[in-house]
Each structure stands twice: as structure tokens, then as C-alpha cells.
């Protein structure tokens, strides 16, 4: 009887305040979508970093043939220069920082190049001689890049020292900025959601003041009087959270999985399974918001 009674109360309340209930659903939806987006962006950053930092090496490009540039005034690097540089990288002085040193020959560079771009017509016209020697230096700690850079750049035969990490830095920067914006909007929308839920519950409580008064009079417990209001808020918030999860799923599925992941292959992306990881958190936040705001409101409007 009690369950049925509470359900009937909730049904009445939601129907009587339909417009407000819908607005609570929508505002919760938007705010949780931003919370979720922020979480997914950070997951993306972590994922990319994990994968990337595991693989990153410092590339020491050696002077290629047929070119006399500022860093390579003497043309292509010589065998002696290569050996000298290898000796330096493998010296005791750098042993603490350098994990492995690997010399990529022109042939290997060409093969790797063809493997990656071989299906493009322009790539097939590249010859082995157009490639260049390079050292792949894997560091014990990728953060120590500056040391290798200082040690190697400017030495004869070295064209350029590139930290592979720096290639993705702009991407991480963009992702982090996007996260910040998401968090900012999420906070703003969450405040709006709390205010709106509070107002909705207050209206609902006021429109049922007589009923509440009578329930009080015949000995209904506080909890029992407040439960329908709380559940009304929680149901609206739950719907909002469900919409947010659905929205994120659609976004991740169609934009990331079907488009980004297909066209940008060098990096792992978040996928819909990550959305399911975020989902319970969003639902919990949604319900938490609703319950806390109702408790605060109801303690004022349905006093014993």
C-alpha cells in the first residue's frame, strides 16, 4: 500500500509540474554531458600519453645526402661521424639516461616509409637515397630529453634532434584546454541544475502543502512525506543522466569510433566502453544532486 501510495504521489507530482520536471531533466542532461565530456577528454589524454610515452624515442636525424644546409655544411654524414655519435650515446656518461640506441639505416627508413605510405602514389617515387640515417634513442625517463638534445645538437653530422613527445604536445594542449572548458561549463550547469531542482521541489511542495499538512496530522513520518518529493527530483535527474550517457555514447560512437579512429590511426582513442565506465559516475552525480537539493529544500518546506 505504501509503495503504491508513494508511486501515485510521484506520478501526480510529476504530472502537475511537467514543465518544471522536463526542464530539470534537460538541465541535468546538459550539465552531466559536460561532466562526462570532461572525463572522456581526460581519459583520452591519459590513453594517448600512456601509449605514446611508451613508444616515444628521441630521433637524431643525421645529415642526408645532397643537401648542404646550415646544420649540415659538409653534406651527408660519414661513417666515422656515425660511429663517433654512437660512441657518445653509449658512453658511460650517458648510460644512466639512455636505455637503448638503435641506428636506422636508409634502407630501413625507406622500408618503414613504404610500409606506412606505400599505397600513395607520391611515396612510390621516393628512393632509398632520399632517406636519411637516424639514431633512435630510447630514454630511461622520456622527460630527460633536454640532456640528449644539448649533448647532440650542433655536432658534425647531426641534422636535427627531435623529441617525439613534442609532436603530440599541441594535441595534449588542445585536449587539456577542452577539458578545462568542459569542467567550467559543467560547474556552471551543475549550479543551474541545483537551483532549478531546488525551485522545482519547492513549487511541488507548495502546491501540495495542504496534502502534506494532512499527512503530517495523521501521523505520517517525515521521511514518508518527503520521499515522493525526493524521488521526483531523483527520477528527473536520473532521466537527465540517462540522456547524458546516451548523448556521450552517440558522440563517441559516431564521431570517435567511426570517424576519428578510422582516419587517425597512430593513436588509440576512447571508445564506447569508456562511456560505460563514466556512466555510473554520471548517474551517481545526478541522483546525488537531486537528493541533496531536495533534502535542503524539504527541510524548510515540510517541517513536522
Amino acid at each position: 500500500m505504501r509503495v503504491r501510495f508513494v508511486l501515485a504521489q510521484i506520478g501526480n507530482g510529476l504530472r502537475r509540474n511537467l514543465a518544471m520536471a522536463v526542464s530539470v531533466v534537460l538541465v541535468t542532461f546538459i550539465s552531466l554531458a559536460f561532466v562526462g565530456a570532461a572525463a572522456l577528454l581526460q581519459m583520452q589524454v591519459d590513453k594517448a600519453k600512456d601509449d605514446w610515452y611508451d613508444r616515444v624515442e628521441v630521433n637524431v636525424y643525421l645529415c642526408p645526402a645532397g643537401e648542404a644546409s646550415q646544420s649540415c655544411p659538409d653534406g651527408e654524414v660519414t661513417e666515422e661521424q656515425i660511429e663517433e655519435l654512437r660512441g657518445l650515446l653509449e658512453s658511460d656518461a650517458l648510460a644512466d639516461y639512455v636505455q637503448t640506441v638503435y641506428l636506422e639505416t636508409k634502407e630501413q627508413a625507406w622500408e618503414a616509409f613504404q610500409e606506412r605510405f606505400g599505397d600513395q602514389e607520391w611515396a612510390q617515387r621516393i628512393t632509398q637515397d632520399q632517406m636519411q640515417f637516424s639514431f633512435r634513442v630510447k630514454l630511461v625517463d622520456p622527460e630527460q630529453y633536454q640532456l640528449i638534445y644539448d649533448e647532440l645538437s650542433g655536432r658534425p653530422g647531426v641534422q636535427q634532434v627531435i623529441d617525439q613527445r613534442s609532436i603530440l604536445e599541441p594535441l595534449f594542449l588542445v585536449l587539456n584546454r577542452a577539458t578545462l572548458i568542459s569542467v567550467g561549463l559543467a560547474v556552471l550547469m551543475t549550479v543551474t541544475a541545483v537551483l532549478l531542482i531546488t525551485t522545482t521541489i519547492r513549487l511541488s511542495a507548495m502546491s501540495r502543502r495542504r496534502e502534506t499538512e494532512i499527512m503530517r496530522l495523521v501521523g505520517a513520518s517525515n521521511f514518508f512525506i518527503q520521499l515522493p518529493f525526493m524521488l521526483e527530483g531523483a527520477i528527473a535527474a536520473l532521466l537527465g543522466a540517462a540522456l547524458a550517457v546516451g548523448g556521450l555514447w552517440v558522440g563517441v560512437h559516431y564521431i570517435v569510433e567511426e570517424w576519428l579512429a578510422e582516419s587517425v590511426r597512430f593513436m588509440p582513442f576512447v571508445d564506447t566502453s569508456d562511456v560505460w565506465t563514466v556512466a555510473p559516475i554520471l548517474v551517481a552525480i545526478g541522483i546525488g544532486l537531486a537528493v541533496v537539493s531536495s533534502l535542503v529544500t524539504l527541510s524548510r518546506y515540510t517541517k513536522v
Partner: peptide
Amino acid sequence: AIAMQVIGKPRHQV
């Protein structure tokens, strides 16, 4: 009935 419902009296009793 509300007086019985809010204090959780079973349906058949109501």
C-alpha cells in the same frame, strides 16, 4: 484511506 496509507497499513486492511 490516506490516514491509513501514510502509516503503512496493508491494502486489504484499508
